[in-house]
Design a protein around this nucleic acid. Sequence first.
DNA 1: TCTCTCCTTATTGCATGCGATAATCGCATG
DNA 2: CATGCGATTATCGCATGCAATAAGGAGAGA
Lengths: 263, 263
Amino acid sequence: MKHAQSGATSRSVNDPTAKGKGPPAIEDITVKPMPASRTEAVQEALRQAIIEQKLRPGAKLPEDALGETFGTSRTIAREALGRLAVEGLVDLKPNKGAFVANPTLEEGRDIFMVRRGLEQTVTGLLAGRLRADQMTQLKAFNEKERSVSGVDEKESIRLAGEFHLLLARMTGNQLLIRYVTEVVSRCSLILAMYGRPHSADCGVDEHAEIIAALERGDAPKASHLMDHHLESVAGRAMLEARAEHDIRELLAPYAARIKGMTE
Amino acid sequence: MKHAQSGATSRSVNDPTAKGKGPPAIEDITVKPMPASRTEAVQEALRQAIIEQKLRPGAKLPEDALGETFGTSRTIAREALGRLAVEGLVDLKPNKGAFVANPTLEEGRDIFMVRRGLEQTVTGLLAGRLRADQMTQLKAFNEKERSVSGVDEKESIRLAGEFHLLLARMTGNQLLIRYVTEVVSRCSLILAMYGRPHSADCGVDEHAEIIAALERGDAPKASHLMDHHLESVAGRAMLEARAEHDIRELLAPYAARIKGMTE
DNA sequence: TCTCTCCTTATTGCATGCGATAATCGCATG
DNA sequence: CATGCGATTATCGCATGCAATAAGGAGAGA
């Protein structure tokens, strides 16, 4: 069972997958999504790149370039872009192309608002229903967060998001997992855009408190903590944004009018 | 089975008149039914068909057949299916094809659980913040619901879903609108699968109560009413399902094992 | 008669080609 | 000098073709 296509095609694109086909090992299904098809691979790669700001918000995503980059055709890139558009990480403008989503502050607030509701559902479902091994996993994760807090900024942000994903996965509710995944992705993007440095680090202790409340089975407290945790994260980011970025935000329309930019 | 005899009429690949900038083909404008792109048109059409149970859950959706049906190529059908898969209305199985989502009772419960959280967010955002014209619109809608209640079953179900969408739209929160749209779609599918007749009709009065609470600005009450409204709708449907469908549900794994089906 | 294997066939996954659309630039003109 | 307009080019939208995979059936052997 080979994966590379037989050489009939004159075009030999560099196929990154051709370098050894590791048989999919048995993996922890709760933690690992899955490699899946090429489309999903590209989708996932783009998602990561967007979240990590390797691709700036508003950046154009030409199908050709993406296809070449990932060693696939435009078709795959196109499909991945379409799905990311459904997720809200990409803006798809007809006959104009795909762009990295460039959420405004208002959209950011909207997303955080939805996230608060979703994660309250998460805590409501988990409180008092976590198995021992899950509690262990959560506490270990929190320790990992603490260990990189203040050391590795990027990793800290990534783990902070991952913590919420971990909680969501523990509900076993597939839809909830999907939605939380989406909002966490988008919130990461927003925090990267508007948040100040260290705004994510502050969450470690709050995460610990949430874990404790969940362990006690105190659903109202857990939900309350989660809500305030998210509210404060959003609040700090937005406040900071107001001081640091809002000027640019306010000026954008004028600049656009001057330059004749049509957005 | 013949091979795709491409749509033939609607669009001719060889269009000699396209040369020059003469009078734009009139038929082009009239024939062109596309509100947006073709993909989205197909996506929307399929979504409607699935929700209205024109396509049974579990039904296969071959790309060729869809393309032929809609007068497009497989590419469009394929992309639409991919996006619907992201929305959860379609199951995409690698190398096997696309199928109409066939949610189990557990998935149904999961979806309703998420929906409850989302719609509580909606009520929380709307309570006491609705303009007069919006209140008028809501009350008029409720009256419309009442007028068809017990008369037109299908329409009644459709309007019941539409009411929740209307509320979500009034928040102005785009993400919330999208999520509520999705869960309402999927809940419609689930109710159509597992719900008993008339299960949706009962909602008219509850809708009225919610409207009243929103008008008074009583957020907790509105959220509470909404939550119980959805819980009861789900509960009735699931209860009925338990009596009517669960046997099949329980037997499925065994049947699968016998036949060697792996899903 | 049952089963195993191989072959046929329908359908997916992916790549590429072609026409069309929108952006860009040069050019001519008031 | 600014402005409007036509040609060029880059990119998108979409259709189609080709290889690969999975499903189904026929035939041979036990």
